[in-house]
Design a protein around this nucleic acid. Sequence first.
RNA 1: ACGCCUGUAGCUCAGGGGAUAGAGCGACGGACUCCGGAUCCGUAGGUCGCAGGUUCGAAUCCUGUCAGGCGUGCCA
Length: 645
Amino acid sequence: MLEFKNYLKEKIHKLLKEKYPLNLSELEISYTPQQKMGDLALTFPVQLAKNMKKEPRKLALEIIPLLSSLEGVEKIEAAGPGYINLFLEREKFFSGQLHSIGQTSLSPEEEKIIIEHTNINPNKAAHIGHLRNACLGDTLGRCLKYKGENVEIQNYIDDTGVQVADVVFGFMELEKKSLSQIKEIKEKFDYYCWDLYVRVSSYLENNPQAETRKSEILKKIEEGKNPEHETAHHISRRIIKAHLQTMGRIGVNYDLLPCESSILHLKFWEKAFSLLKEKKAISFVKEGENKGCWVMYLEDESEKEKIIVRSDGTVTYVGKDIAYQLWKFGLLEEDFYYEPFFKEDGKIVWISTTTPEKESPSFGKGSQVYNVIDTRQAYLQKIVVQGLKSLKFLAQAKKSTHFSYEMVALSPKSLKELNLRVSEEDKEKDFLEVSGRKGLGVKADDLLDRLEEKALAEVEKRNPELSENLKKETAHKIASGALRYFMLKFALNSIIVFDFEEALSFEGETGPYLQYTFVRINSIFRKLKEREGFEEKDIQTLLSSERIPLEKLSESEPANFWDLVLYASQFEEEVLHSIRSMEFSHLAKYSFTLCQKFNAYYHLYSILAEENKDMKRIRILTIYYIREVLKRALSLMGIPQPELM
RNA sequence: ACGCCUGUAGCUCAGGGGAUAGAGCGACGGACUCCGGAUCCGUAGGUCGCAGGUUCGAAUCCUGUCAGGCGUGCCA
């Protein structure tokens, strides 16, 4: 449809530009609210009439005869306040759609796009908040790749930060464990650290004098070559592996893990610092409360300046982030070294190091960068972009996108279910922020376990004859699909107040509903093969042989057929729309509606039992078309496609 | 105090100038001897927070206002 609309726009513009003041960009083509009004609606006459001081409806009627040469259009009508509605030639359109399956009319616009997502502190297990981030980032990546873009996924690891230091403190000071003792811990390590981190946080709150030791640990971790550093390194690497495994469960993976430790040791910041000073992007404060600091002034003068380098000479988090952002664009004249870290499905995830390695791919040097971080980081992201602007990297500043979304919070009901204790003050609230520090959160693996357990029970109920392995594999796919759809279906601005019952649902607007639809279609094809020996390759014969006699359809079928096909044809428009608006709930909603339309159709018209050959052929082609579109939609959302369920 | 976001059906949310405001859940009532009931069909349920304004047209844009959330660290 995207391609067809582009053709229409250009053609209409060409036909009308002599007579009317009309811009190609203003020529929006939308859909009619009802099939009987036609398929596509041109709304421009209303606006045009205003500019020309004419009556809209008259203008529409005046224009219609000029459009008679549009290909693929059967009928044109004036409608409503002055719209021009187009009726498409159905057979031609449907046939065209079938023949172009597998081709895309989207095309890349960038040299290379870098997406940074997940970014979990490597000191505890991943939780539901991290899952939202990963699902969004991963889906963005999948959609951009579908569009043809060259995409690199980075997962930034803050392996030298205070959060890791906290857990090092816990092991060394609270548990008095040596590194070898830590290595011997057999329990799920990210869970172990989750609890320890909570203990440390409350200990530090009650024992402020311990901060001295913590600062010392932090410093030693940065310095390297000491027990604190070794411990931190062990913890972070082991937890990163746990995170990669967790994310692997829902089909999320990465190309590169850039580490803060590498940024420190390779002196990325020093390079960025001299650049910032050289271009006068930051200034040294001699007077006042920020005396001795290097600060950046914001474009928006109402906002106060942001400290980049503290009066003791240490750099803040944003400072390091500016250096990292510069590197992503290839603007730093410095690079990491890389080594393989983890293998997944034969694909290597690389990690940054400080020592040269024999062979490694090239990373960074993006022409566009997306940072997937929740909305609470909006201020800091703004400063990172300001940094680029101040350095006169205006093009890169424009191509730096904060992919912002609201947080995941916990409902009071979920808290109760988790047996988490909450302060009196927090009890009053409608929802509670997830907090690793307080241990308030649903661990990602726990949620996935529960989803898999429930899915397995459902599979067991329906397909008891399957092998154990197949049951488990199917349950895993359903669990993953349920979670991914759940994380995608909310608009970015919407806070997800997490509720178990809702998240564990497999009915209604859920991932499994979409998967079920897909399974049903495949089931028809499986039966066609079993009963009639009809195979996939026969679809191609059906397609190429003769025309599709839509006139053989009767009663309500033409309308239902056309409604379904026309909607399915909008897939690529939806993908593009989702990318442009960075709102993947559009894609989720679209896929759901497509399934609803299919399921309604499915209940009305049978395929296997249909005796009329022409009708059967049309229906087979229809469900084939829907399956192909649905397949692509699911894969863009990272929702697995089970054989059965 | 300032900045950003949110307020739509009992609940969770779509729709973000255009034709009759939609889903899911929950409630109630139904569905094929037939391709999978994780499905489908129907009924009830709405002053789109409130008040102004712009427009041929406003849930949508603007202003004000009320309510809630999140930011505004020499934390990360």
